[in-house]
């Protein structure tokens, strides 16, 4: 694809994207009224915006958003580190993979969010059970991607390094680790969005902090606008986490052809 047609794709894409946003926001503002949908089902955009301002001043929206964001970041980082570490460890040892794979599979099939009540029983209404759910849910996509990457390194590449008398550590650091980075980042992208899911479920189940708490509180009050505000803020938190991963990925994987790394 030439640069000229590439930039025209970007231009037209952006224009269409922005028009869609305007159409969506307009439909949100005036659609419910036109269709006769009452505000407690779908409150118009302006009501939700007013509610956001009220929550900012009265309900501590910034505080709760901050709590959720901190839990997401902590859960995401710890879950990713753990997933990557175990992925490399198992990837380097076929015996370990053989021995552990049934348990890993079982844990992977178990719905991770179902652990939330258990963790709250263990750790109380603190931030820790939420972080733990996020760790558990982020762990798997990262670990599986790293494991698959290590498994699929071209054996001829390993032989090439061996022919140069590479040590096991050199083979790992010079071939296996860098080769695993693109799949690792694919796993991190998925993990960054799943971390939000884990945290919110934890907050919904118990406690009086975070956007999940505001979500449950709004529901209890039949305050639909409040629920909408919480959903929007959660989406923003998830989006920010995802964007951060993309930015780091673009720095680390700068050697990949541009089109192989279409951002979003």
């Amino acid at each position: 694809m030439s640069d000229a047609s590439n930039s025209s794709v970007v231009w037209r894409g952006t224009a269409v994207s922005l028009s869609l946003l305007v159409v969506f926001l307009a439909a949100w503002q005036w659609g419910p009224g036109l269709l006769g949908i009452p505000p407690f089902i779908i409150p118009p955009l302006s009501t939700v915006a007013n509610e956001a301002v009220r929550m900012w001043h009265v309900s501590g929206l910034a505080y709760h958003t901050g709590i959720t964001a901190a839990e997401v970041i902590a859960g995401f980082i710890l879950g990713s580190l753990l997933g990557a570490f175990i992925g490399y460890l198992i990837g380097m040892s076929p015996t370990a993979e053989f021995a552990l794979s049934p348990y890993i599979l079982a844990l992977q099939i178990a719905p991770k969010v179902a652990f939330a009540p258990l963790f709250i029983l263990w750790m109380g209404f603190t931030v820790y059970p939420k972080i733990l759910v996020a760790i558990l849910i982020v762990f798997f996509p990262v670990m599986v991607n790293v494991l698959t990457a290590i498994r699929t390194v071209d054996p001829d590449l390993i032989n090439l390094a061996r022919a140069f008398k590479a040590t096991r550590a050199q083979i790992f650091w010079k071939i296996e680790f860098p080769a695993s980075l693109p799949p690792l980042f694919a796993g991190l992208r998925i993990g960054s969005t799943l971390a939000v899911v884990g945290v919110v479920v934890g907050e919904l189940v118990g406690g009086n902090m975070g956007l999940g708490y505001l979500l449950a509180f709004g529901e209890g009050q039949a305050n639909t606008a409040m629920v909408f505000v919480a959903i929007v803020m959660l989406t923003l938190v998830g989006g920010a986490a995802y964007l951060l991963v993309i930015l780091i990925e673009q720095r680390v994987l700068h050697y990949l052809p541009k089109r192989a790394m279409s951002g979003f």
Partner: peptide, 26 residues
Amino acid sequence: AFMLQKDLLLPWRTVIENVMFGVEIQ
């Protein structure tokens, strides 16, 4: 030293870094 049909270049290394791969290991 051997050379195969596949070039076995490491995509994260520049040309000169790829050339230096063997001597670096040694």
